[in-house]
């Protein structure tokens, strides 16, 4: 049970519970990736907690041999905040989806991000409500036909990464359920970041929204339609590595340029600076077909985390007051004695 950290494997993080997602669900790949990655992070089952809300993705904790809390719809960020405040030394992962995290729980997610509680937040975005059988979600594209929108949805979708940046998140990244080499990297970066780490995972719902991300995740278009950004490297993409992002000073927007055309060389391509919040906002809102979908660490600018600041404030007050004494506390101010 208590193997030394270096000897733990994916098996040590897998619970004995039968996984009950639909065959072919993108969640399986994410689960496997997590079980594989945690040993590499030096994590231990005892010190790791998975907290989730309600929805398909939120069954995740049951399949991990760690501590887990499957809470109520949308409220996982609040529960996880309580866990982290009570014990800042725990590794807390928050599993949520587009409905759980951005619809019913949007408020909690926003405040958790702005407070910068040291949680690793994974939002499985499949642009649909799976567990309630296929209604459109706040990330569904306008016009989505679903049981509740037979004539097409009318509301405009929310961009999770832009939402996170707007909420003050200090770490925002994206990955894809099928990107089994990319995802572990992102998990490691999210884990290493002290403060709220927000990761959007494009996750395919094979039953209710199959292929919704095919326009950029299909093998045939992946290289041309996604841009994997890395800090300090030029933002180049494409099968032939000949496309890149440049800044258009006239429109204050990014645009796609082709290396070798119009006098553009590799040195003209913007270099990714993950600490630049302006750039992060621009990258987060790009989408196919005119732009690549940006994956990787879009923004990472560490700042002090809420639970550490809270603990420090408590310790400072304790140090000032000395040993706690209720009797003395009650007797502060005006008292009188009856003989």
């Amino acid at each position: 049970m208590n193997k030394p950290v270096g000897h733990l494997t994916a098996k040590d993080f897998a619970s004995d519970q039968e996984v009950r997602w639909c065959p072919g669900c993108g969640d399986y790949a994410i689960l496997k990736c997590m079980q594989r990655t945690l040993p590499e992070l030096g994590a231990t089952p005892a010190n790791t907690v998975f907290v989730s809300g309600i929805g398909c993705s939120s069954r995740f904790p049951y399949y991990m041999a760690t501590y887990g809390f499957h809470t109520i719809h949308g409220r996982a960020p609040a529960v996880a905040t309580g866990v982290k405040l009570a014990n800042p030394d725990l590794d807390v992962w928050l599993i949520t989806g587009d409905g759980d995290g951005l619809s019913i729980g949007g408020n909690h997610l926003m405040h958790t991000l702005r407070r910068n509680v040291d949680l690793n937040i994974l939002l499985f975005n499949n642009e649909i409500y799976g567990l309630t059988k296929g209604q459109y979600s706040p990330t569904s594209r306008a016009g989505t036909r679903s049981p509740s929108t037979p004539y097409g949805s009318l509301d405009r979708p929310l961009d999770p990464a832009a939402f996170a940046l707007g909420s003050g998140a200090r770490f925002v990244a994206r990955t894809i359920d099928t990107a089994q080499k990319h995802m572990p990297e992102i998990f490691k970066r999210a884990h290493a970041h002290k403060g709220a780490s927000f990761v959007e995972i494009f996750q395919n719902c094979i039953v209710y929204n199959d292929g919704v991300f095919n326009d950029f995740t299909e093998k045939s278009v992946l290289a041309d339609r996604t841009l994997n950004v890395r800090h300090g490297e030029p933002m180049i993409f494409g099968k032939n590595r000949d496309k890149g992002l440049v800044f258009d000073q006239k429109t204050f927007k990014l645009k796609v340029a082709t290396i070798g055309e119009d006098g553009i060389s590799e040195s003209d391509i913007l270099v990714h600076d993950e600490t630049n919040s302006t750039l992060a906002h621009l990258l987060a809102t790009l989408s196919p077909p005119d732009f690549p979908m940006v994956i990787g660490v879009i923004y990472c600018a560490p700042s002090s985390s809420y639970e550490r600041d809270m603990t420090a404030q408590m310790e400072a007050v304790k140090a000032e007051h000395g040993a706690p004494d209720i009797n003395a506390y009650l007797r502060r101010g005006y008292t009188w004695t009856v003989e």
């Binding site: 907690v49 907290v51 809390f69 809470t71 109520i72 409220r75 960020p77 609040a78 529960v79 996880a80 905040t81 309580g82 866990v83 982290k84 405040l85 009570a86 014990n87 725990l90 408020n107 909690h108 926003m110 405040h111």
Partner: peptide, 18 residues
């Protein structure tokens, strides 16, 4: 907390954590 629900949920999370 940001609202009543988050208030009780954070307390529940803290109780879970000891």
């Amino acid at each position: 907390a940001e609202d009543e629900i988050a208030a009780i949920c954070s307390a529940i999370g803290a109780s879970f954590a000891g």
